[in-house]
């Protein structure tokens, strides 16, 4: 049996790579939201002076990567690998950003769970001594996602109360064993879970079973319970999804109560007309690399279970009648 594999799907690290530098960026809607004090850069123009939202998204990503490197007092030349992911077809934001950074690139896709997938894989590279330093970043952009997954921006559409709003922003982190920062002590990679939800207007409901599955497996593998964590953070379940997630977790015997927080349900204020809350690769990234890290530095949290969820579908698959599957990956972050 693999030495570092703990239980069924959790990998425990010996060296516990640290997040030695991180940065977050977001747009004007996020600036008016609840997490604004935790975001490093808030840009007034979601287009960043670019002609297309796709170009704007990769600019967000690139700027955030540079900022994270600067905070780690490192440059792109110090990075052994860059792990990046986003929502756009063929992960163009990440690959074009990687072209500009010039760091050997490992493209990943886990929909909105990409940031935790990246942090988990990055931690494995460092812990396995395959790399000294790795850069991990993900991004999403409201306008770019709308046109790919939904309708033109100016179309006369009334968003449903259950649908979610793609966060415009990006988050980046540098992992290394050298330096200071919260440690990543283990990662639980999730199973693709499908409870037969077909509407992309209730993505939170499609992802909640996956979040619950990974949560249960994580507790089982690590022999822990909600009491062992100061915070259980989920990525973008939204108002409706987090309620379903709490119910499913309760059924499975895990009462999360006030220890749980969902980034999607928290990021926007109710009057911002964002439906059930935020979503997108940037949502979990802003929560983990913005909110959690800052609160860990402040000493409010010591041990956090960060669980990012993703809805696995494409416009093609749901138009062909396929259900929307969910995935969730979890990492444990600990203060030194």
């Amino acid at each position: 049996m693999a030495r570092k594999l703990q239980g069924l799907q959790t990998i425990a690290f010996d060296l516990s790579p640290k997040i030695v530098g991180s940065a977050t960026i977001a747009g004007p809607k996020e600036k008016k939201g609840n997490l604004a004090p935790y975001i490093d850069n808030l840009v007034p123009d979601p287009m960043l002076g670019e002609q297309t939202p796709e170009k704007a998204e990769r600019k967000l990503l690139y700027q955030t990567c540079q900022e994270a490197l600067a905070r780690a007092k490192l440059t792109e030349h110090d990075m052994d690998f860059f792990l990046g992911g986003d929502l756009l077809n063929q992960i163009i934001s990440s690959s074009f950003c990687a072209r500009d950074l010039g760091i050997p690139f490992i493209g990943i896709y886990g929909a909105c769970s990409s940031i935790v997938e990246g942090l988990g894989l990055g931690a494995m590279l460092v812990d396995g001594e395959y790399a000294d330093q790795v850069l991990i970043a993900t991004s999403s952009h409201y306008q770019a996602s709308e046109r790919q997954f939904r309708y033109p921006i100016e179309l006369n559409i009334q968003h449903k109360g259950t649908s979610q709003w793609t966060v415009t922003g990006a988050g980046a982190a540098v992992l290394s064993t050298q330096g200071e920062g919260p440690r990543i002590t283990c990662v639980t990679f999730g199973r693709v879970t499908d409870y037969g939800i077909k509407s992309p207007d209730i993505m939170g409901a499609a992802m909640a079973p996956a979040a619950n599955d990974t949560l249960c497996r994580h507790f089982q593998d690590t022999n822990t319970s909600p009491g062992d964590y100061d915070l259980v953070l989920t990525g973008d379940l939204g108002n409706m999804g987090q309620k379903l997630f709490m119910d499913l977790a309760k059924e499975a015997g895990h009462t999360l109560g006030t220890k749980h927080m969902d980034v999607g349900a928290t990021i926007y204020k109710p009057q911002q007309r964002a439906g059930a809350g935020g979503s997108g690769c940037a949502c979990a990234a802003l929560g983990i690399l913005g909110y959690v890290i800052k609160e860990m530095y402040q000493g409010r949290y010591r041990r956090v279970l960060a669980l990012a969820t993703g809805a696995l579908f494409s416009p093609l698959s749901y138009q062909q009648g396929d259900s929307i599957a969910g995935i969730a990956h979890a990492i444990v972050m600990e203060n030194p």
């Binding site: 309708y151 179309l155 006369n156």
Partner: peptide, 23 residues
């Protein structure tokens, strides 16, 4: 307008015009 009034903006011919212009 459509975000607030829904079908009130979608049904009249202005809504049809909007679908073509928006695209």
């Amino acid at each position: 307008l459509a975000e607030r009034v829904g079908m009130g903006a979608a049904v009249p011919i202005t809504g049809f015009s909007n679908t073509v212009t928006a695209a």
